[in-house]
Amino acid sequence: MSSMRTGDAMFELRRLRMLHELALRGTIAEVAASLSYSPSTVSQQLGILEREAGVALLEPDGRRVRLTPAGRVLAAHAARALELDEGARAALAGGPSLEPVRLAAMPTAAETIVPAALTLLAAREPRLRVELAALPPEESLFELAARRFDLVIAEQYPGHTRERREGVTHELLGEDPIRIVLPPSEPPAPLRALHDRVWVMEPAGTAARQWAMQQCRAAGFEPDVRFEAADLTAHVRLVESGHAVGMLPDLIWGDAPPSTTVADLPGHPVREVFTAVRDAARSGEGIRLVRDALAEAFLSR
């Protein structure tokens, strides 16, 4: 499917996707960066779409543009047209050549689950091309809705459920225990005993950071978060070298034993590791194969 007809106008799907992206991202510059076009090309194509529609789709908003009411209506129809196109492609997939699967995974999964899954896929379906980007869940789930990726591996912490976007299905891969990590020279210690220690945590604004802060506060103290890092390997190195304590999921160790001292948190909390896929693409053969391999890799680690 490459176009959508409304009345006498035939809308090209490429231009409809630009409008859909603008509704999601908010600026022409971000649309251009996402789709690998120049901003002038995006503006030109949206201008053509506007002429085809016969109504104003964009209006000035300071130095930027925003969608008019008609623009928002057409953007909603564009999202459905993109879903139909994707659903048709998924229904036809699985023939002589499988569609590539664009996978975004949180770093801990990219380092542990994904390599094992790729090994399984290489033996089962060598025709299948899998492209991987390691991204935090906050970014990858947004980009899934924007169709940059086909499948996402993400997580959610207890009491911090991820936003459920319309047209996207979450499926649980499994549970991943979260524990206190201390320098390897130290014995295990309860959380309340770490009130005067230096902490390493993920950046402010992430679900992991919010959750970790709440654990410390529930234990009766405000943590001294001196180090921030999105890469959990940096957490491990800081703890190993004796500069900090932290909280890490078991998945960070993969098949190897922990290189730090570990201690249980109150209530033995776990984070849920899940896959997310757009409903329109869910039936695609390649996506099903990748998802099955990821589930097997998670359970066998």
Rank of each mutant, 00 (worst) to 15 (best):
S3H: 11
R5V: 14
R5S: 11
T6D: 11
A9V: 08
R14K: 10
R15A: 07
L16R: 02
M18P: 00
L19P: 04
L24D: 04
L24T: 08
R25K: 15
T27R: 04
T27M: 06
A29R: 12
V31Q: 04
A33K: 05
S36E: 08
S36W: 12
S38Q: 13
S38E: 11
S40V: 13
T41Y: 12
Q45Y: 13
Q45G: 07
L46E: 05
R51E: 15
G54K: 07
G54C: 08
A56H: 13
L58R: 11
D61P: 00
R63V: 10
P69I: 12
L74T: 00
L74V: 09
A76E: 11
A76K: 08
H77F: 02
A78Q: 06
A78M: 02
A79D: 01
A79I: 00
L82D: 02
A90Y: 03
L92E: 15
A93E: 09
G94A: 06
S97T: 15
S97W: 12
P100H: 03
A104L: 05
A105Y: 06
M106W: 12
M106G: 06
A109L: 09
A110M: 15
E111S: 15
L118C: 14
L120H: 14
L121N: 02
L121S: 07
L121Y: 13
A123T: 08
L128P: 04
R129T: 10
R129Q: 14
A134W: 00
P136F: 05
E138S: 04
E139H: 13
E143L: 15
E143M: 06
A145S: 15
A145E: 05
A145Q: 06
R147P: 06
R148F: 01
F149A: 03
I153A: 14
A154M: 07
E155Q: 12
E155Y: 04
Q156H: 05
Y157Q: 05
G159Y: 02
G167C: 09
G167N: 01
V168Y: 13
H170S: 11
H170E: 09
H170P: 01
H170D: 13
E171Y: 08
E171N: 11
E175S: 11
I178R: 03
R179L: 09
L182E: 09
P184E: 05
P184D: 10
E186S: 10
E186I: 13
P187G: 14
P188Y: 06
P190N: 10
P190T: 11
L194G: 00
L194E: 02
D196F: 00
V198I: 13
W199R: 07
V200F: 00
V200Y: 00
E202I: 02
P203S: 14
P203M: 10
A204T: 09
A204L: 11
T206D: 04
T206Y: 06
A208R: 08
Q210L: 12
A212H: 02
Q214L: 00
C216R: 01
G220D: 09
F221C: 04
P223C: 06
R226S: 15
F227N: 08
F227E: 03
A229H: 10
A229Q: 04
L232R: 06
A234E: 15
V239N: 07
G242T: 07
M247A: 09
G254K: 03
A256V: 10
P258M: 12
P269I: 00
E272W: 14
A281H: 11
R282A: 10
S283Y: 00
G284L: 03
E285D: 06
G286W: 12
R288G: 01
L289W: 01
R291Y: 07
L294R: 05
A297S: 14
F298W: 00
S300D: 15
R301F: 14
R301L: 11
